[in-house]
Design a protein around this nucleic acid. Structure first.
Lengths: 248, 248
DNA sequence: CGTTTACTTGAATTTCCTCAAGGACGGTGG
DNA sequence: CCACCGTCCTTGAGGAAATTCAAGTAAACG
């Protein structure tokens, strides 16, 4: 039951620097609630009576589909808001990966605040846009990236989002199974791909045997392997056509 | 260059019945613009200066990723709005599949209307929520459905969305390649899967050789093959655990 | 009527999954 | 302190699904 990986997140910057204080105003008076590892915040299909703000910890957002398979559509970290862009019922379940702290606000109050507060609307809107953009990126990842590209994309985004720039230590709060369900792979494939990247010298482990803490040895190489073509966008046109062909 | 499949959409119901008139008010005074097949409405990365309403026709919304691969994230039909949930720049390109008619509204005007019109906000919000829900469904499809399940899901949704209830004729405006890029498959796999469904007697072709017009012979069977478990959601709990295992 | 585009079909290959086993760590209880 | 257990992770062998490569057919267009 107890999660053996109740990692402490050092290196974590304040996410969502813009407008965060504006959002915090909404939740500042709400009491904090504590969630143990594995504890559910809400279930898919529940009446969407509340909007939540994550104060601390990491949660997974997922759906269970017919064969009992789980699809994780995202992870939530400190500063994230969940429950905004839906009507009536939650489209997914949310549960704590690490011991977490959240605040809640009744949807009625939330809607009222958004309706009355001119300054709040653009902040909320920006969040919804980010969510939409993330969903688009995920669709691209799932429809056309290889296992290695998926994992590299995940690590690069995690590095950017959850550590200070320049930091190359990633302390993953989620299990390999979480990552697999997020990337549309199996746990074995995730494991093998991590090993492969380690063998290539792109990443390593802080503590042999403790494979949740990853050190990125070659961040540039990792970025190249995401398949996003972030690199060399300034190539001359005739070279662009000669890019490596992409399997599917 | 010219699209040989400038199909006429018979059987098409009015989509988005709720609040459509409310949205139409925004665009009613705007002049119509015509797009030929294959013509672009805007490109990924363009300044998002306008919001568009599709009046007639079908468009594809897509991104080009590094290896030259194209990922279609959605199709737009009459009544759809595009360009709402983004900031600054379009996240994707949009181009006409069939000859299409659209109206445009400057973002400034759009934003002003949303800010001032209390009644408009929930309608817009509902659209964004639908978009988000569709993105979630697509992530589920891409991360854990087989080729057959993907195609069946596509056909069922298309049937529900673009024909009157009970109608079993689907006139697909998009090519097999469009479908492949939407479902995260290759054109060959789509083709093979269509053939397989035809051999099973689940669907047939109105005109031999003209394979864009599909007749669904067994709608119930098609729905079962989507892998959504829409069926038997009322099973007793102990049976739920015994559902057929799902490959991945 | 020839060319182009869209689609289909087959064979070989590849990637990832499935199944199976084993190892490492943390917690528990003797 | 140590043996035991459960969970998480890794690794290997074999298999299945979808991709790639390669023709080949059919309809649409000029």
């Amino acid at each position: 039951m107890a999660n053996p990986y109740n990692t402490v997140h050092t290196h974590k910057p304040t996410p969502h620097a813009n407008g965060a204080s504006c959002l915090d105003r909404l939740f500042v008076k709400q009491p904090v609630e504590h969630l143990a590892s594995g504890q559910s915040l809400f279930f898919e299909g529940d009446d969407a009576k509340h909007v939540f703000q994550v104060v601390e910890g990491t949660l997974r957002v997922f759906r269970i589909i017919s064969g009992g398979r789980r699809v994780i559509t995202g992870f939530l970290d400190a500063g994230d808001i969940v429950g905004v862009s839906l009507r009536g019922r939650y489209l997914y379940s949310a549960e704590a990966i690490t011991p977490s702290v959240v605040k809640r606000l009744a949807r009625r109050q939330f809607d009222a605040a958004v309706a009355s507060d001119e300054g709040l609307r653009p902040v909320i809107f920006a969040r919804v846009c980010d969510e939409m953009a993330a969903a688009q990126d995920q669709m691209v990842l799932l429809s056309s990236k290889s296992a290695e590209e998926r994992l590299c994309t995940f690590l690069v985004k995690y590095l950017r989002r959850n550590t200070v720039p320049g930091c190359t230590i990633i302390e993953l709060p989620m299990t390999r199974l979480d990552i697999a369900d997020y990337l549309g792979l199996t746990i074995e494939t995730v494991s093998r791909t991590v090993t492969k990247l380690a063998n290539k010298g792109i990443l390593g482990f802080e503590n042999p045997g403790l494979r949740h803490t990853i050190r990125i040895e070659r961040p540039g190489m990792l970025a190249q392997l995401t398949g996003d073509g972030d690199d060399h966008e300034d190539l001359p046109g005739d070279l662009l056509a000669l890019r490596e062909p992409r399997r599917h």
